[in-house]
């Protein structure tokens, strides 16, 4: 039986329909990656499941508890780490963890003991007694993640856990997240980074405009794009459209272009002869290339195929209310 069952959840904020009927089934002990651009409804979905928002319609259960009717009981089996590191700057790392432990209902001694163990596993023991304001961005996120685990949750919600981190800290945090999953914690992770979903998630749901528009493993989603992708960049980006027109007949569909940097991508049935053919056509059209390659499809291609836009595109202004929007975070 799935540990998270969501059926037909909708949520509107005034005119903005943040969720338009979300269905999810997540198996115990797996990582589910909810992938989508800003404003797609990822944060709203997590807030509903973490009992922070009451949905307009639909039902959702987490670990057997209804997110509305059983919210108080549900809270003792979940952990949440939001977009900004929700830690107190003035307190030390240890005091933060202890505080959350106490609020989970741990006795003072247990909260301290468990806090020590958790800080150790997140490599923060050395900074346990330092105020959080002296922490780096990566350390704050680790502390935030540590705090979400004090109550030994069955289900952990991570809302864009690595947004705003530099690549090295991001990969560092991934390792901690992978370890959690090895211990059997079920994880629902939202991200706008394709490589993050690719690296961490067993199942991926692509969410756009408040609906899950595709679901599957990373490989399943990639096979939706089919075949390989011919990917090239023109030397003069003003020639992007001309280049796309030149190679139009080669692929199974219209080439996707990015005029800002002169990129053209095109799904092809089989890689055989594609490069030669493309180079000949582009040469005949007098278009100079910066580079050209055949590659395996990425989740970016999936998203493009499904929605006609890349994840990086600002689809809509962020529609999540209150404290979770980007830019509200602190330095």
């Amino acid at each position: 039986m799935p540990i998270i069952e969501v059926s037909g959840i909708t949520k509107s904020f005034g005119e903005v329909r943040a969720l338009r009927g979300v269905d999810l089934n997540i198996e115990e002990g797996t990582v589910y990656g909810l992938l989508g651009p800003n404003g797609a409804g990822k944060t709203t979905a997590v807030r509903v499941l973490a009992t922070l928002l009451v949905p307009d319609t639909g039902t959702a259960t987490v670990a057997g508890y209804d997110v509305v009717a059983d919210a108080p009981a549900l809270r003792s089996v979940i952990g949440l780490a939001g977009q900004s590191a929700a830690v107190d700057e003035i307190l030390t790392g240890m005091e933060n963890i202890e505080m959350v432990g106490r609020l989970y209902g741990l006795r003072p001694r247990d909260a301290r003991q468990r806090g020590g163990a958790i800080l150790e596993r997140f490599d923060l023991t050395f900074a346990a007694d330092r105020p959080v304001k002296t922490y780096s961005g990566g350390m704050r996120r680790r502390l935030d993640l540590a705090a979400s685990l004090v109550g030994a949750p069955k289900v952990l919600f991570l809302d864009e856990p690595t947004t705003g981190l530099d690549p090295r800290s991001r990969i560092g945090l991934w390792e901690f997240i992978e370890d959690l999953v090895d211990e059997g914690t079920t994880l629902l992770l939202t991200t706008q980074y394709l490589e993050e979903a690719d690296a961490l998630a067993d199942q991926i749901g692509v969410i756009d405009h408040g609906k899950v528009i595709a679901e599957g493993t990373s490989d399943e989603l990639k096979s939706m794009v089919g075949g390989d992708v011919l990917d090239f960049q023109v030397a003069d980006r003003h020639e992007t459209e001309a280049a796309a027109a030149a190679v139009a007949g080669i692929g199974r569909e219209e080439p996707r272009i990015d005029k800002a940097n002169g990129h053209v991508a095109l799904s092809v049935e089989s890689p055989v002869g594609v490069i030669t053919q493309a180079v000949r056509r582009l040469d005949a059209a007098g278009i100079k290339l910066r580079d050209l390659a055949i590659r395996r499809p990425t989740l970016d291609d999936v998203f493009l195929t499904l929605t006609g836009q890349t994840i990086g595109d600002e689809a809509e202004p962020e529609d999540v209310p209150a404290a979770t929007g980007p830019g509200r975070g602190h330095s």
């Binding site: 922070l52 949440l80 900004s84 107190d88 989970y104 109550g151």
Partner: peptide, 15 residues
């Protein structure tokens, strides 16, 4: 505290 996401954390806790 709301801006820093602390209130969200508190509201997700069994407190």
């Amino acid at each position: 505290d709301m801006g820093k996401g602390l209130i969200d954390r508190f509201r997700s806790l069994p407190m």
